[in-house]
């Protein structure tokens, strides 16, 4: 499974003030919990840590900005910022808890699927 977030032509990647996070959009701003978990599992701890270190210091501020928008109907740049923040929750499992990209000594790819009734 290879998944990427795309930015439509003529649209900002992220809201103004978050430009330095734009490089993380294609890989980490994907829609869906199962997809975000996949991205975390399918890369290295070093890559996860790079993303974590960049996004964590801006996460609270990003959520404060995003609270002004309806959760399920955000404009493109805000929706991508929200997905970056949601990916931080996935990344934190590797960085703060496991100390490895995935659950240690577990198979990858695996048959685990997170099935949700809506795709945020």
């Amino acid at each position: 499974m290879r998944i990427m977030a795309t930015v439509p032509a003529g649209e900002r990647s992220l809201p103004a003030g978050f430009e330095e996070l734009e490089e993380f959009v294609p890989y980490w701003a994907v829609a869906g919990q199962n997809e975000r978990r996949h991205q975390r599992c399918d890369t290295t701890l070093a890559e996860i840590k790079r993303f974590y270190d960049a996004i964590y210091p801006r996460a609270d501020e990003a959520m404060a900005l995003l609270e002004a928008f309806p959760l399920r109907d955000m404009p493109g740049p805000e929706a991508r910022l929200m997905r970056l923040v949601l990916s931080l929750a996935q990344a934190s499992m590797a960085v703060e808890i496991q100390g490895e990209a995935r659950v240690p000594k577990s198979p990858w790819p695996d048959t685990v699927r997170i099935l949700t009734e809506e795709t945020l």
Binding site: Q33, M63, E67, M82, M93, I97
Partner: peptide, 14 residues
């Protein structure tokens, strides 16, 4: 809200 979605993402990720 986005904060609730973030909490839920963390909860399910764990």
């Amino acid at each position: 809200t986005v904060r609730e979605a973030f909490h839920q993402e963390h909860y399910i990720a764990r």
